[in-house]
Design a binder for these strands. Structure first.
Lengths: 153, 153
DNA sequence: TTACTTGCAAAGCCTTTGCAGTAAA
DNA sequence: TTTACTGCAAAGGCTTTGCAAGTAA
């Protein structure tokens, strides 16, 4: 209940931030762009372009898959969203939010976010300074999500 | 000097392990497979199929790109190598060695390995047990490698 | 009205696959 | 000799692009 209210609030904030970002970047605020962004901000899984397309067709039946691709590329270029690292052939996307890490299910490939503040308590090996300048560190945890665990028992 | 000797030794070991693995898996030990594996084991960067193909053509001029793809898929299926996570459209590969993490340069996309034993000193957030069963955790550090740092100064 | 966006269709890039010849065991 | 593997060529999946029509500002 409260969670839902908080989530709604956060979506409203994200959408407002999105509208400002569009203005700042000189991007026109189209129906399609708003739906694509909202889809990414609300569902918070890490959908592929194809998945976003299928979901949005329910709201905008005439939208085309290339618009989804083009829009995602535009958003990423302007730093509104991120392309996520995967071993799959299809790209996955997420809205840019507070630093976080990923849980990846080996079976269904679903990606879930998590926070891990105490990670910063461990310093990176010193040798890394020779490699170059570090900007960010991300953890990917692999395993089997609880939904998939039932499948083979 | 010593490093080189150690590296040679390690390559010899990897190759022997590879030959055994082929036998165990019932895979024929072909000229092409040996070169592809050796290329991955020696250079230890994280090449794309295309890069491996270009390098090996110097040794086996008649090799085809599809053989490289097919061989990499076969190796990965038998657990001899790993496909590495990236945001790029081309897949990258590495031989399966001791647990390690990746440094990724935002500019040249080169991937470098590093060890980080003390990572295990920090336990994952407890909430993760709700998500499912954790099997492995990998860190990807982003930044600019020293070779690329000079480019914009 | 003007310039940016979209939908359509076609092309592009990376990867996979069917087939017949080749080579490892 | 037998069966897996390779090279060739063609197809496949995901993504990008050119163009004319449509739409936000």
């Amino acid at each position: 209940m409260l969670d839902k209210k908080v989530a709604m609030e956060s979506i409203r904030e994200k959408r407002a931030a999105f509208e400002n970002a569009c203005r700042d970047a000189g991007l026109r605020l189209t129906h399609q762009r708003l739906e694509i962004f909202t889809e990414l901000a609300v569902v918070a899984d890490h959908p592929t372009a194809e998945t976003i397309y299928e979901r949005i067709r329910k709201k905008i039946p005439t939208i085309s898959l290339d618009t989804v691709y083009r829009t995602l590329a535009t958003f990423a270029r302007h730093g509104l969203i991120n392309k996520v690292e995967t071993v799959e052939s299809q790209a996955r996307f997420e809205v840019k939010i507070m630093r976080h890490h990923h849980l990846t299910c080996r079976k269904c490939n679903k990606i879930t976010d998590f926070q891990w503040e105490s990670l910063d308590d461990v310093s990176l090996p010193v040798e890394i300074s020779r490699w170059g300048r570090v900007e960010n560190k991300n953890v990917i945890v692999y395993g089997i999500c609880s939904e998939c665990m039932g499948d083979d028992i």
